[in-house]
């Protein structure tokens, strides 16, 4: 038993230590970090890195706004249309449900891949530098559809049937009965989906050239690239680190990570129940 806790505890520490390090550095003073290197505990406790970021906050605020818009619209829209489709797919009396289920599943087995998708988005849909280029890719995901369908299949046929006898439209049955009864599953999918949107940088890398539209993760990636580029130049010309000092410095970079990853990590424990249950239902029935 002790061995069990030892192994699990050790891995648990591995999971949490990097985060502690990031938070510690973000609350350390820049000069202390530069003289001692990164540490696991804050040296010279201060919040100056955060005030430093917020002093020049225009880009950060824009990046936050972009991420929030994309995450909110994408999650709401995606959850709604996937839930609607899942309700139809979950009903045996829906003629054609097998064909449609297959249509949703097949892209898991075979896909067009990067280039045709890129050409479709850029040339035929004209979505370069548009929020929709960031929203469309995750909007409908076969896994989420199957997860919701599994939840909805568990609702007894009698419930649906009795509502039909009372003359309800399917859309009414869906919104008044099915959605409230499967709210746990819908919450799980909304959480999974919002995580996909919030953590996305790949679609921005492909479709966003306008810096004003960059979402948070993509903006961070750009900052890292710039720092690295200047450091390379710096070592090449053998100069001191003067150029680098204008950039978000060591502590500010970690403060940036805290601000980007923080919202998800703070929200998640409140929804952990839905989340773990969602993974389970999805893996067993889906």
């Amino acid at each position: 038993m002790l061995l069990v806790h030892l192994i699990l505890g050790l891995f648990g520490i591995c999971c949490v230590v990097p985060l502690i390090m990031v938070i510690s550095i973000s609350f350390s003073s820049e000069s202390a970090i530069l003289s001692t290197g990164y540490r696991l505990l804050p040296v010279g406790l201060t919040a100056s890195a955060y005030s430093h970021i917020f002093d020049r906050a225009d880009q950060l605020i824009a990046a936050y706004r972009n991420s929030i818009i994309v995450t909110a619209v994408g999650t709401a829209l995606g959850t709604a249309i996937m839930a609607g489709a899942s309700y139809a797919l979950s009903r045996k009396e829906f003629r054609g449900s097998l064909v449609f289920t297959f249509l949703f599943m097949f892209p898991l087995l075979f896909s067009g891949g990067l280039v045709p998708t890129y050409i479709l988005m850029v040339r035929y849909l004209g979505l370069l530098d548009s929020y929709w280029a960031l929203i469309l890719p995750f909007l409908v995901n076969p896994w989420h559809v199957f997860l919701l369908r599994a939840y909805m299949q568990s609702i007894p046929q009698d419930v649906v049937e009795s509502a039909r006898i009372d003359g309800a439209y399917e859309a009414q049955i869906f919104t008044r009965i099915i959605v409230p009864m499967t709210s746990a599953g819908i919450a799980a999918v909304a959480l999974l989906l919002s995580l996909l949107y919030w953590n996305d940088w790949y679609n921005a890398l492909l479709y966003i050239n306008d810096a004003a539209l960059a979402p948070l993760q993509f903006w961070m990636m750009r900052v890292m690239t710039n720092i690295r580029f200047l450091l390379d130049v710096d070592t090449l010309v053998g100069g001191d680190v003067m150029m680098v000092e204008d950039l978000p410095n060591e502590t500010a970079r970690m403060a940036m990570v805290v601000l980007a990853a923080g919202p998800m990590l703070i929200v998640y424990p409140f929804f952990q129940r839905y989340f773990t249950k969602g993974i389970r239902v999805g893996s067993i029935k889906g």
Binding site: I81, G112, P116, L136
Partner: peptide, 22 residues
């Protein structure tokens, strides 16, 4: 039922099936 499934199906056809043709 078809109306309920239509939006998700349309997105799937546009984003997943059109690239296969591509």
């Amino acid at each position: 039922f078809l109306l309920l499934i239509l939006p998700a199906l349309a997105v799937t056809i546009v984003y997943r099936y059109l690239p296969m043709g591509g």
